[in-house]
Design a binder for these strands. Structure first.
Length: 444
DNA sequence: TCTGGGGTCCTCGGGCCC
DNA sequence: TCTGGGGCCCGAGGACCC
């Protein structure tokens, strides 16, 4: 999908179409998750600190991500992909590999092109959004092709042309080459994929170590035998929070770790998993990050056990100077719930954890405690309903006021009105569907 | 400019066992 | 009893990806 989150927001909010839109964390330490192509013109890009984005594009719309909406759209697209082949490997909400041969959806260049164009049309019809398709003989090349196809395009890499195509490209196009490896290679006189092929496998292994070197050399020769795997088991579950202001108070740090442990266990249970290794993550005031872990004798999904382990791990960490991030994770997962009976017995007399009702969703979907009207938070970009003016979305809030633009995916750009944050006529609302009767916005 | 959140995989050192 | 090596697990850290 092209600029996925930002495109979804533009589809939902007619007044943002054709405008610079930036989606990400809006706090003082937020970063850009995705931005529209209009925002990229100003130099804004993913992973950029939000403060920097605001300097580059002060007039862009800044929105908080709405993962529920993106997940729904993602499921629609993944369903279309599974109609092509049983071998679909999602990489994220907006990207997936599909083995077209395994699904007999394509067997040569011509049939692949037809399947690709039909898929793009189907995505557009079902979601109202544009997607790009890369067609090639391997995952690596399909990925490179899809990058070149964006936005709203299709690129096929013809068999036999792969090495010539790769040779002049930066090493950074290869999977697994990020900033650090890129610098490392450049210092070794290697900057293009062709340079890697020329350097030879021994030199790559010398520079990067066995696994990375051998793998990268093969990629540079366009050799990529990785299969498309439909189902991957989750290996770990974690939650982490970056705080707007560093936490110095040790008591508060302990409290936050307990809260994170509980949230992590809720996720774990929602996924019907348990795990043996508890991991505590601490990012200090100077951005140095350390982890401490402890492996239990058996897997657990008991909140008391995870809380205790996390608290023990915290005791070995010096937090003077302040912490900017705390995280709690569980790995060494078992796909069944095997209670640690020893730990259960040990904590039986303690505070009883609140079990999640069977089949309930994750923490973020759980109904929230009723919040007094005066303390309600209005998140930029989230949908609202007003008793008189109908459906709209929060443009901004502050100083006891909230500004709402009243429009829907099919309304055309709407009017803006401002209310008191505690206005009883205003309520949070669910996102509206982006397509009506299978007709995308703007096409009818 | 000042760096999110959720993951995956690899490396390396140390301890333990055979 | 001392020394060494291989294999495995654990813990920590780093790099990378979206």
């Amino acid at each position: 999908m092209d600029a996925f989150y930002a495109s979804a927001e533009q589809a939902a909010k007619p007044s943002l179409r054709g405008k610079a839109v930036v989606v990400g964390g809006l706090g003082p330490r937020g970063v850009v998750a995705t931005c529209s192509y209009e925002a990229r013109v100003f130099g804004v890009h993913s992973a950029m600190p939000m403060a920097q984005a605001r300097r580059l594009a002060p007039n862009a719309a800044y929105l908080v991500p709405r993962f529920g909406l993106y997940r729904e759209i993602s499921e629609q697209v993944m369903k279309l992909l599974r109609e092509l082949s049983p071998l679909v490997e999602p990489l994220s909400l907006d990207e997936a590999f599909v083995d077209l041969e395994a699904g007999r959806a394509a067997w040569d260049e011509r049939s692949a092109l037809l399947a690709g164009e039909k898929l793009r049309a189907d995505i557009r019809a079902v979601t109202g959004l544009t997607g790009s398709v890369g067609l090639a003989a391997s995952k690596m090349l399909a990925k490179i092709a899809s990058e070149r196809a964006k936005p709203d395009g299709l690129v096929l890499i013809e068999p036999g042309t792969e090495r010539a195509l790769l040779a002049p490209l930066s090493v950074r196009v290869l999977p697994g080459v990020g900033p650090a490896t890129g610098d490392h290679l450049r210092r070794g006189g290697i900057s293009t994929v062709g340079d890697i092929a020329e350097a030879g496998e021994d030199e790559l292994v010398r520079l990067l170590g066995k696994a990375h070197g051998v793998g990268l050399y093969a990629m540079a020769l366009a050799r990529d035998e990785r299969r498309v795997v439909a189902e991957r088991d989750t290996k770990s579950v974690s939650v982490e929070d970056t705080y707007d202001v560093d936490i110095h108070d040790r008591v508060r740090v302990r409290g936050e770790v307990q809260r994170l442990a509980d949230r992590c266990v809720q996720r774990l249970r929602a996924a019907r998993l348990s795990g043996r290794t508890i991991v505590l993550k601490v990012r200090r005031y100077d951005f140095s990050t350390l982890t401490r872990s402890e492996t239990l004798r058996g897997p657990t999904d008991d909140p008391a056990v995870v809380r205790e382990a996390a608290a023990r791990l915290l005791e070995s960490v010096d937090t003077t100077g302040g912490v900017r991030l705390l995280g709690v994770g569980v790995s060494g997962l078992a796909d069944y719930t095997q209670e640690d009976l020893f730990a259960q017995a040990r904590t039986a007399a303690e505070e009883e954890p609140e079990p999640l009702p069977a089949g309930e969703g994750t923490a973020e979907e759980a109904p929230e405690e009723p919040v007094p009207a005066a303390r309600r938070r209005w998140h930029a970009g989230h949908d609202v309903r007003h008793a008189e003016f109908g459906h709209g979305w929060v443009q901004g809030s502050g100083l006891g006021r909230v500004t709402v633009r009243f429009e829907t995916p099919f309304s055309g750009p709407g009017r803006v009105k401002t209310f008191r944050v505690d206005d009883p006529a205003l309520a949070a609302a669910e996102p509206l569907p982006l397509v009506e009767r299978g007709v995308p916005p703007g096409s009818g």
